[in-house]
Deep mutational scan, measured.
Amino acid sequence: EDYYQILGVPRNASQKEIKKAYYQLAKKYHPDTNKDDPKAKEKFSQLAEAYEVLSDEVKRKQYDA
């Protein structure tokens, strides 16, 4: 799945936009606030993985290549 789609940001998003999108979605899908939703944990880990790659310039360049 596309990391940009997961975070809901365009491919040319700035680091600030990526961070903002991640924090909004992380708050929304955090397992502690969605105890009754088994998919929230999965969504949250996808968000974390996408953010880890896109927030790191080197990893992001490799991902975009």
Score class of each variant (00 low, 15 high):
R11Y: 07
K61D: 10
K20P: 01
L25K: 07
Y4Q: 00
Y63K: 03
K20Q: 15
E52I: 11
I18F: 02
L54T: 01
Y29E: 04
R11K: 15
T33I: 12
K27N: 13
K19N: 09
S45D: 13
D64I: 02
D2P: 03
Y22C: 02
Q15E: 08
N34T: 10
E57Q: 06
Q46G: 05
A48M: 14
K59W: 04
A13M: 02
Y4L: 01
A21I: 04
R60M: 01
P10C: 14
A50T: 02
K20Y: 14
D36S: 11
Y22S: 01
I6A: 05
E17V: 07
Y3R: 02
Y63H: 04
K28L: 14
A40L: 11
K43C: 09
E52R: 07
Q62A: 14
A26D: 03
N12S: 12
D56I: 03
I6S: 04
D56L: 02
A65P: 05
E1Q: 13
D2G: 06
L25N: 06
A65V: 09
E57P: 15
L25Q: 11
F44K: 03
Y3L: 10
K27L: 13
E17W: 07
A40S: 09
D32A: 10
K28R: 12
P31K: 10
N12K: 08
Q62V: 06
K20A: 14
D64A: 02
D37M: 04
S45K: 13
L7G: 00
P31Y: 07
D36I: 07
E1R: 11
D37S: 08
P38V: 12
R11E: 05
D56F: 02
D36G: 13
K35T: 12
Q62H: 11
T33Q: 13
S45E: 09
H30I: 08
S55F: 05
E49I: 13
L54R: 00
K19V: 15
K43E: 06
A48Y: 13
V53H: 04
G8I: 04
E17A: 11
R11T: 05
K27W: 05
A50Q: 00
D56Y: 02
E1P: 14
S14R: 06
P10Q: 12
D56M: 02
V53W: 05
Q5V: 11
Y3M: 03
K59G: 03
S45M: 14
S55L: 04
V9K: 01
L47K: 02
H30C: 07
T33G: 14
K43G: 04
Y23H: 14
